[in-house]
């Protein structure tokens, strides 16, 4: 068992190394010194408190969305609709937080989380029901729902809720903001890194526990491994398909916490910056293991912030290429380690 985890972690590390090598090659061809550039990235991220905090700030939403995607992946469901789910939920979350002046924070916060969760969950419920009832692939429906969700949010925002001549909602009261970590660690000063990070870590632990240690998790994974056998083992496949999608989509709304309560205080169109898609890569890299997702989210946060830090030296796109390559190489290397493990297990 442990051997397996070591091998799988190893294969993730090999993929990252492989990708780094290819990226080195790219930079070399572009006529840049890869050592200088990567050195700069490392010193920015690990050398300064601010850089490290910024990286963690970028990591936070990726942990949340990565775990959400992982729930679906375990049931062999492909949720490509993260982006739409995040925006719909976060938008409503921000609206809720500003719609009841006078109510205390301790009521507003859970209320906002709840409404955000419900709205995001609806965007997961729809493709799940269409899949269960009519057998339509969730890949298609979730992609389409991204357009619908983003267009709806855009419409309601511009025509009703946006602050004049902006594309954002009104700001929540100052006392609603989450505590920033720079309050405790002075070197983080200037970074919006906030307690959402701990919420994200807690979520990862909860999802890990649910997936690997509870009968619900076993059922979710069972319908992914073998839906027919699941039926005969009296697992309600339709029910768990919907449960997986609703949980995953609902969880996507929590991405909004980091931005709305932790950083800006409002919802702004486009804030999610494709987190819903990056989450797929984050989850894949970690083989959908929520603990692993914490680390792979950190890698993507690192690349994201690192890319910004060396912006004047190389185009930021290099880091996007890196992200894409990581996914490709992890898929390839995983296949190799899987084959190796399979042969080894068979021999034993």
């Amino acid at each position: 068992m442990n051997k397996k985890i070591i091998f799988q972690t190893g294969s993730a590390l090999i993929s990252i190394l492989l990708t780094a090598l290819i990226t080195f090659g790219f930079l070399f061809i572009l006529g840049r010194d890869p050592v200088v550039i990567f050195g700069r990235i490392f010193s920015e991220v690990f050398g300064t408190g601010y850089g490290f905090a910024q990286t963690l700030f970028k990591t936070t939403p990726l942990i949340i969305s990565g775990c959400a995607i992982a729930i679906c992946f375990h049931a062999k469901l492909f949720n490509i609709g993260g982006e739409g789910q995040i925006n719909a939920g976060a938008f409503v979350m921000a609206l809720t937080a500003t719609s009841f002046p006078g109510l205390p924070f301790l009521i507003i916060l859970p209320l906002s989380i709840l409404t955000g969760f419900i709205v995001s969950a609806v965007f997961g419920f729809i493709p799940a029901v269409i899949k269960v009832k009519k057998g339509v692939s969730e890949v298609i429906t979730t992609i389409m729902l991204n357009f619908i969700s983003l267009a709806m949010v855009n419409y309601f925002l511009i025509s009703h809720f946006a602050v004049e001549s902006t594309i954002r909602t009104t700001k929540i009261p100052e006392n609603f903001f989450f505590t920033k970590l720079s309050d405790f660690i002075p070197s983080f000063h200037g970074s919006p890194l906030n307690i959402t990070l701990f919420i994200a870590l807690l979520l990862a632990l909860i999802i890990y526990f649910t997936i690997y240690k509870t009968s619900i998790g076993y059922k979710l994974r069972a319908i992914g491994f073998n839906p027919v056998a699941s039926v005969y083992m009296s697992v309600n496949v339709n029910k768990y398909t919907i449960v997986a999608f609703v949980l995953a989509a609902g969880m996507m709304s929590f991405v909004g916490l980091n931005y709305i309560f932790g950083y800006k205080g409002f919802y702004e169109y486009g804030f999610s910056a494709n987190i819903g898609f990056t989450a797929i890569a984050v989850s894949l890299l970690a083989r959908n293991n929520p603990i692993g997702i914490i680390f792979s989210a950190f890698l993507f946060g690192f690349l994201d912030y690192g890319g910004l830090a060396v912006n004047e030296l190389v185009p930021k796109e290099i880091m996007l290429i890196f992200q894409g390559l990581v996914v490709l190489s992890i898929l390839g290397v995983n296949k190799l380690t899987d084959n190796y493990l399979k042969i080894n297990l068979e021999r034993n």
């Binding site: 059922k219 491994f225 027919v228 005969y232």
Partner: peptide, 16 residues
């Protein structure tokens, strides 16, 4: 096809 989740151990099959 119908009787078990091959990837699961005996105990995990029971729990499921």
């Amino acid at each position: 096809k119908k009787g078990m989740i091959s990837e699961y151990t005996i105990g995990e099959n029971v729990i499921t």
